[in-house]
């Protein structure tokens, strides 16, 4: 078999290309540490997603230091949660699975991109150094309204990020002359303790309470309200913790008006 010299040279050059390409890919794996989606995520029965310890309540979880885990369930044609917020300078591991057909979870304009196959859990770890806002889209056809499947990933500055939740339990009315209690429940999803101040404003009165909410725990703060000081009528109240706020109205009624005095919640909800 006689091969022309030029063609022999080209054969060598072609091999150099091929080996060079594979060397580049290998560099990407060991240098910048790029890892492929693999079988680490394990499998899951799609029928059991609601009872699954991770996917039963999808969302962001703090697992320590700058590490977070985000569980996402994809289904035709949305992601749960639809909005994901994580801090900058963090290392986030996404766990994504599908309730129905094959989807993808692709963060637009980045190299965060995985197929989401029913029965499988896609696990991928991403470092977010800078704050930014990204769209998330499904790039695998998943039925008639596939093109409407989208989500949002917000990477916020570290000091603006927390996993605090506020809920308030307050009666809607109280008989004049009685005392009542407005209870703020502050929960802290971060692993570190949260030192903060819970403030209540009602009518023209205000009070503040410093609390330390333990990591991955919650704390109740009770504010005693004396209706005598408020006087009869409607009184708007506001409970604030950091950037979270709950509001409601407390009505002080004259006892003879026959108000039932039951503690039907007036302002009750989650921040």
């Amino acid at each position: 078999m006689n091969i022309h010299t030029y063609e022999k040279a080209w054969l060598v050059a072609a091999m150099v290309l091929i080996v060079g390409f594979m060397a580049t890919i290998t560099y990407g794996a060991v240098g910048p540490g790029i890892a492929m989606i693999d079988d680490d995520g394990g499998t899951i029965d799609p029928a059991e997603i609601n009872d699954h310890e991770r996917f039963g309540e999808p969302g962001v979880e703090h697992v320590g230091d700058d590490e977070y885990e985000v569980a996402v369930v994809a289904q035709a044609w949305s992601y749960t949660p639809e909005q994901i917020e994580v801090p900058a300078d963090s290392e986030v591991t996404f766990y994504v699975t599908s309730r129905d057909v094959t989807h993808s979870f692709s963060v637009v304009g980045t190299n965060v991109n995985t197929m989401v196959i029913p029965g499988q859990i896609s696990e991928m770890t991403v470092r977010f150094d800078e704050p930014g806002e990204y769209g998330i889209l499904c790039n695998e056809y998943c039925g008639e309204y596939h093109h409407t499947m989208e989500g949002k990933l917000n990477v916020v500055p570290e000091d603006e990020f927390d996993l605090t939740e506020l809920s308030v339990d307050a009666p809607s009315e109280v008989e004049a002359g009685n005392e009542t209690t407005i209870t703020a429940n502050v929960s802290n999803g971060m692993q570190e303790d949260l030192e903060t101040t819970v403030a209540l404003e009602i009518g023209d009165q205000g009070s503040e309470r410093d609390v330390t909410v333990p990591g991955d725990g919650s704390e109740e703060v009770e504010f005693t309200v004396d209706s005598a000081e408020l006087g009869e009528g409607d009184h708007d109240w506001t409970v604030t913790v950091d950037d979270y706020e709950e509001t409601g109205t407390l009505t002080v009624v004259n006892a003879t008006d026959g108000g039932d005095g039951s503690a039907a919640s007036g302002g009750d909800g989650d921040a």
């Binding site: 890892a35 989606i37 079988d39 499998t43 197929m115 196959i117 859990i121 696990e123």
Partner: peptide, 11 residues
């Protein structure tokens, strides 16, 4: 390449 459930070595 971006499928879960297949080890990186096979890829």
């Amino acid at each position: 390449y971006l499928d879960p459930g297949i080890a990186e070595g096979y890829k």
